[in-house]
Design a protein around this nucleic acid. Structure first.
Length: 202
DNA sequence: CGACCGATCCTC
DNA sequence: AGGATCGGTCGT
């Protein structure tokens, strides 16, 4: 495996949410399984920043069973279900205990491609389709509700490493996807991706 | 307790 | 372009 294998520490996540979300690009996310290791390079992220952001689940400091982890320690996993069968994976980020999350929208498969194929329901031969969307990535890495709230700085089965941080010059940004309800907040360019990387979602 | 709906995926 | 699908959320 290429890339720096040191873990990202909690202090990495305890900073400005937009900065952290951008600097997640190029980092590696690792899932240890009984059958081996699954590794992906993060190539697309989005920032959701309560309490002002109408696109965020924590808009207006909304506290529910689902969002409670966003008010806890930085570096925890915020996993939620969407459209019945699908999950999305975020990392709790930001200063103090202000609610904010960085959504992982796509990764580039690095290690364990056969395991990813096995985990995905769709059996396409194309590597590109394994992880190029937030819920496709969760499927490939077997991330489900059971992973809600786990500490990515301390857990042995799911964590992030320093990897190959993306150059500032290779990063693009755009409005976030599928938040038409967010009114004036939907146009904020809080989606970050590695320019030209073919594993970015469509 | 019931109604609504989504940080999406997949097939048509 | 449209259907699937179900837990979280909220109003009653």
């Amino acid at each position: 495996m290429t890339g720096n294998e040191e873990r990202l520490t909690r202090s990495f996540y305890e900073r400005d949410p937009l900065m952290v979300t951008k600097e997640l690009l190029g980092r590696y996310i690792v899932r240890e399984t009984g059958r081996g290791k699954i590794v992906g390079k993060i190539v697309e992220t989005e920032a959701y920043i309560g309490p002002d952001d109408k696109g965020s689940h924590t808009f207006n400091n909304k506290k529910t069973k689902r969002t409670r982890v966003q008010y806890q320690e930085r570096g925890l996993a915020y996993v939620f279900s969407i459209y019945g069968k699908n999950f999305c994976f975020c990392i709790v980020v930001g200063k103090d205990h202000e609610p904010a999350a960085a959504l992982i929208r796509a990764v580039e498969p690095i290690t364990g491609i056969e395991l990813m194929k096995k985990n995905r329901t769709i059996k396409t031969g194309k590597i590109k389709d394994l992880t190029n969307g937030p819920s496709k990535f969760c499927q490939a890495f077997n991330i489900t509700a059971k992973d809600y709230g786990i500490d990515l700085c301390g857990d042995d089965s799911l964590y992030l490493t320093k990897g190959e941080p993306a150059d500032e010059t290779s990063i693009s940004r755009s409005p976030r996807i599928n938040i038409d309800y967010a009114e004036e907040w939907k146009d904020k360019k809080w989606r970050f991706y590695i320019t030209g990387n073919k594993f970015v979602s469509k």
